[in-house]
Write a protein that binds this DNA or RNA. Structure first.
Length: 152
DNA sequence: GCCAACGTTGGC
DNA sequence: GCCAACGTTGGC
């Protein structure tokens, strides 16, 4: 089983939004970066555990846990000219962009902030805290996963 | 294939 | 709102 961290802006789609969705499940659309796409398309499997991260907000950090419940399929928002993430170069018969479905598992008891994660010597290799990392999806090792949860 | 210009992300 | 760090685009 693999572990991941997925960023979302709480003003757009936060952990509470995921919890309130039908089946507490939502498709992770709108990723328009090839590295992030490759991770979703090739490596994210059903049952993988996901840290839900709030970015671009007052207290950026990990706020909850989700789980992959559907593996890679075409991101249909890329086909919709009215969608914010429309990509005219992606066609239904040969899609450029893919997504997975994630399901709410639980909220953390508290937000484990980016600031706090950066201070931990155990997490210097965490992709999230590496300089210049802007990817919306990051791999997390099992060791990192366990350690971060121990901070809760 | 190079690289300058531009766009985006996201912390601060 | 600023700006560093990337990714993408497009002229050549």
């Amino acid at each position: 089983m693999n572990y991941w961290l997925m960023k979302s802006e709480p003003d757009v789609f936060g952990i509470d939004d995921l919890q309130q969705r039908p089946q507490q499940t939502e498709h992770w659309d709108g990723v328009r970066n090839y590295q992030a796409r490759n991770m979703m398309r090739d490596d994210m499997k059903i049952g993988d555990q996901v840290f839900f991260y709030h970015s671009n907000c007052e207290l950026p950090g990990i706020v909850g846990i989700a789980e992959v419940v559907k593996e890679s399929y075409p991101d249909f928002t890329a086909f919709d000219p009215d969608d914010k993430h429309f990509d005219p170069k992606s066609h239904p018969d040969k899609p450029t962009w893919f997504m997975v479905d994630v399901k709410f598992v639980r909220k953390l008891k508290r937000t484990i902030s980016l600031q706090e994660l950066k201070l931990k010597p155990e997490l210097t290799d965490l992709a999230l805290v590496r300089r210049g990392n802007r990817l919306s999806i990051n791999p997390v090792t099992q060791q990192q996963w366990t350690f971060i949860l121990s901070l809760e």
